[in-house]
Design a protein around this nucleic acid. Sequence first.
RNA 1: GCCCCCGUGGCGGAAUUGGUAGACGCGCUCGACUCAAAAUCGAGUUCCGCAAGGAGUGCCGGUUCGACUCCGGCCGGGGGCACCA
Length: 837
Amino acid sequence: MAARFNPLEADARWQKVWEEKSTFHASGNGARPRAYVLEMFPYPSGRIHMGHVRNYTMGDVLARYRRMNGFDVLHPMGWDAFGMPAENAAMEKKVHPGEWTWSNIDTMRAQLKRLGFALDWSRELATCDPSYYGHEQALFLDLYEAGLVYRKQSEVNWDPVDMTVLANEQVIDGRGWRSGALVERRKLNQWFLRITEFADELLDGLGALDQWPDKVRLMQENWIGKSQGLRFRFDLAEPVAGEASFEVFTTRPDTIFGASFAAISPDHPIATALAAEDEALAAFVAECKQGGTTAAELETAEKKGFDTGARVVHPLDPTWTLPLYVANFVLMDYGTGAIFGCPAHDQRDLDFARKYGLPVTRVVAPSPEEANEPIGDEAYTGPGRLVNSRSLDGSTAEDAISSVIAQAALGGWGEGTTVWRLRDWGVSRQRYWGTPIPIVHCEACGPVAVPRDQLPVVLPEDIDFAAPGNPLDRHPTWAKVDCPSCGGPARRETDTLDTFVDSSWYFIRFASQPADKPFDKAEAECWLPVDQYIGGVEHAILHLLYARFWTRALNRIGRLDVEEPFKGLFTQGMVTHVTFQDAEGRWLTPEEAESHEGRVTRGRVEKMSKSKRNTVDPEPIVDQYGADAVRWFMLSDSPPERDLEWSEAGIQGSWRFVQRIWRLAAEEAERGGSTWLGDGEDAALDRKVHRTIAAVGANIEALAFNKAVANLYELANALEKAPASPSRSKAVEILIRLAAPMVPHLAEQAWASLGREGLIADAEWPAADPALLVEEEVTIAVQINGKLRDTLTAPKGSTRETLEEMALASDKVTRLLDGKPPRKVIVIPDRLVNLVA
RNA sequence: GCCCCCGUGGCGGAAUUGGUAGACGCGCUCGACUCAAAAUCGAGUUCCGCAAGGAGUGCCGGUUCGACUCCGGCCGGGGGCACCA
């Protein structure tokens, strides 16, 4: 057995063996319990980065651990392969998006394989493959037929130079990120999925996801944004623009007697109608639309209004009228686009009222004494009882809410209702590199679904990226088809689907991939839900919400009897690295920083990014140290949910550890390997080994990889100090099995060198002997007044009396107590004795 | 502005339901081996102090025999949402 572990040789050897034996193929034959371990599939951007390595290493440890525990593990890999970077590459490098994408996939697949992940490559898929997106088109049509897809006019960010729609993130300071042109708001016909119809169940379903981080559940809860309140009608004193009334929404109907104005959005139909006849109002509306949409601008934006001169009638007092304003802070797409203003108890309303000299009447007071306490610069939003509110006076705010809702229902002027922040999901993208929406537009028949036997609708290959805009739109023939319904001339939908649709069901396709349909219901249900899903927290809202929605939508139309796609979710931290800048503030790579002549500033430790020039390419690191050292480093030190700082010293430390395990194994191999096994002789070491078995298992189950790593270091330390014995030989073998999920190549090599049969990947996880988990002797802390003064060793399970006696007999204790008996003695068996003097 | 999370050695971080703070790793110091270095091995490493001892988990206070852990109030860092009625 070689004195040093040679990873380059071992990595390649064992990766080949695993592949030849199809070791990591999920059998799905039902012989063993199943486990589905999944990491978020990568976008094929070009090369693997450290974030991928960390993500997939974590999933891999769990997958290998489950296998060793007797599970039939599904651990697949694929490619989220549609998206804009491919089109950008097409424009910049004059290469076809498909060619660029597939070549990246080849590179990245090879890179992933070099890390030795226990993946079932037989199930690999790419979303840009017609054999994937064709099924997605079928699912889209299923949802369409079920009424969960619809088309409507919607505003988009339009870049007039690139002639394309931009996502909000691509609009920087009101300009297109690529062209720099001023972005316009434009109305386009777009496809939407009815996610809002599932708002209630998506919210309620969060409660059952007890293996999700609280943080993510909270973020989704906020995103869904359920508000309960009253929707009610304001009658106009005189009809305005032909309208006799309009509706408002409020979560605080209790404050209705504190109303001092009504306000509608600049986009409200009444505002539009009035503006048509009022130049000043038209100018005001135009001004509102101009305002920036960045966070900073909104925060500082002044509350502005335009008094229409119209009056609305208070619903509970026909003699009371309020002025009607058009206000810049009222949003058309939330609630009804109109509000009633209660300045005393809403900060925005207060700002507005102060500016326009409107009355501010307190109607909720925390105590009777404060009933007429004037409102200053801050609205009162706390709890209390109603004041200045006629029949409501004296009731709690809570009761008043129900009371007003009941009165509204009775009087027929309003009703209790729920309003959601969540909007329907717009899935149309005016781009080439995505799943074509399988719809044909016919002048006579309108939108018609492409017949199933004509799926997939395949993207044309011969496209031109020289001109701006969507190449599908410009293609000479692709869009021209006959209407499937009437046979007349028609035109294909040239928009493609949001790539989030692709990732909303890939985990189902991994579980079951028949050629003739998206998935087999029974087969998919055997694997789903995913037992453990691992990925970045940046997907906490959109991807995870969309996938939950898609799963529930399939459930509703009877295609899949699963409610939640991901039983367990883990969001891992980023990989960070130091940054360097030169005197001019230019970012330097670590190598440049070292050789730089001028002044170099060591910057903050930040997420690896190309712009900060602090990335570390995993591949050369694997070349130098091998896959196992890299994997080990990814698991060490930092808790997996927090950021991990990459460092040269860290990888070297991991390399040292790999070699230490190897030396332990090599020693034992020379001593005779498995033939030297016998009964335990080193009782203390046996205990340590079994405690480690239990601890490593528990920590892997909890995804606390850093702690499992620490457990293994401790065992290795103990083994290096332990004299040779059968116990020790056995312990080394167990150490190798415990480390196998983390450093699989080393483990296989050591396993073989010790003369063990078969692959360690197929070996059983060692069982911890419960009898060896309990210590015979325990260390007891002796405290005086809660401060540690001494420790003593006692047999486990010693009585309170014995422990108290032993503590009082301690020299230090007698000295410190000065002969006086303690006033009180607290004994926690097997832990401590606290003497209160 | 609203909501959430986090503050522990030089650094990353450990610490069952409140019960010996600093496991494990990195770094550093000293020593062994070596002509020397690397690698490796051994000892040490919260702070103050020669020691005895004292202080110590962002700060202030509280509950408790006992607080990193629970409660209240500050300070600092990070994240999410954002004119959501």
